[in-house]
C-alpha cells in the first residue's frame, strides 16, 4: 500500500508561502520606508521652531525696513559735524591777543616804554620721510602745513649808564621767561640750568644801547620775540 504524506506537502506549500522572498522583501522594504517616514516627520516637526524664527525675523525686518523708509532721507551727519568742528576749532584755537597784550603791559616796568608791538603769522611746510613698506620701495614723504605765530615788541628805556640799561634788558628777558601767565601762549623751552622747570621762549632779536651824552641819559632799544603756540593741528597736504 502506497502511503502519501500529504501533510508534509501542505507544510511545504505553507512554508514556501510564509518565507516567500518577494513577500519578505516587500515587508522589509515597507518597514524601512515607514521608519524613514517617521524620521522625516520627526525632523519636520523639529524644524518648526526654526520656521517660526525665520518668519519672525522676516516680519521684523519688513517692519524695520518700513520704519527706516519712514525716517526719510538720511541726514549727512559727517558733513554737518565737520562743518561745526571747523567753526568750533576756529573759536577754540584762535589766539587772543588782548590777554597777551594785557600781560605784557603788566610785566613791563614803568621805566620802560613799549614802542612797537606786532604779530607775525606764517605757514611753514614740513616734510617727513618714512621708509617704504616694501623692500626697494621709495620712501613715503608726508607734507604738512603748520601754522606759525610770533609776537614781537620793541622796548625803549633810559638809565644813568649803559650797564644799567643792559641790566634792565636782562631783567626784562628774565621777567618774560618766568611769567607764568604766558604759559598757555608762549612756546616752552627747558630750564638752562638743566632742571625740570620750563621757561617761556624769549628771543632777543635786537639790542641797542647808547652811552649817556651830555645831559641825556643812557638809552636802550630792544626787540623781543616770543614764538606763540598755535593749537591748530598741522594740515596734511595731499
Amino acid at each position: 500500500m502506497l502511503r502519501l504524506n500529504l501533510f508534509y506537502e501542505q507544510q511545504r506549500i505553507q512554508r514556501e508561502k510564509d518565507y516567500d522572498p518577494v513577500r519578505l522583501t516587500i515587508v522589509g522594504g515597507t518597514l524601512i520606508i515607514l521608519i524613514i517616514l517617521v524620521v522625516g516627520a520627526i525632523l519636520y516637526f523639529k524644524m518648526e521652531p526654526l520656521r517660526k524664527d525665520i518668519q519672525g525675523a522676516e516680519d521684523q525686518l519688513k517692519k524695520l525696513n518700513a520704519e527706516y523708509e519712514a525716517l526719510g532721507k538720511p541726514v549727512d551727519f559727517p558733513r554737518i559735524q565737520a562743518q561745526a568742528n571747523a567753526i568750533q576749532n576756529h573759536m577754540e584755537y584762535r589766539t587772543l591777543f588782548a590777554t597777551q597784550l594785557d600781560i605784557l603791559l603788566d610785566v613791563i616796568p614803568t621805566n620802560c616804554q613799549m614802542r612797537l608791538f606786532k604779530t607775525a603769522r606764517g605757514m611753514q611746510q614740513d616734510e617727513k620721510s618714512t621708509p617704504g613698506r616694501k623692500k626697494d620701495a621709495p620712501p613715503i614723504i608726508t607734507k604738512t602745513i603748520v601754522l606759525r605765530l610770533e609776537m614781537a615788541f620793541e622796548i625803549y628805556t633810559e638809565a644813568r649808564s649803559k650797564v644799567e640799561v643792559l641790566q634792565i634788558r636782562d631783567q626784562l628777558v628774565e621777567s618774560f621767561r618766568r611769567e607764568s601767565r604766558f604759559r598757555d601762549w608762549v612756546h616752552q623751552v627747558p630750564d638752562e640750568s638743566g632742571g625740570s622747570n620750563v621757561w617761556n621762549e624769549v628771543i632777543v632779536a635786537s639790542s641797542m644801547a647808547d652811552d649817556p651824552k651830555g645831559d641825556s641819559m643812557a638809552s636802550g632799544l630792544f626787540e623781543f620775540k616770543l614764538p606763540l603756540v598755535t593749537k591748530y593741528q598741522p594740515r596734511e597736504l595731499k
Binding site: 589766539t95 612797537l116 606786532k118
Partner: peptide, 27 residues
C-alpha cells in the same frame, strides 16, 4: 594802550567769528 587793549578784548570776546590776524602798534 589801555584803550587799545580794551577794544581788542571787546572784539575778541563779543565776536567769536573774529580772530586778530595781524596787529601792529606803534608808539
Amino acid at each position: 594802550l589801555s584803550q587799545i587793549g580794551k577794544f581788542l578784548e571787546t572784539i575778541e570776546n563779543s565776536m567769536p567769528m573774529v580772530e586778530v590776524d595781524e596787529i601792529h602798534i606803534i608808539s
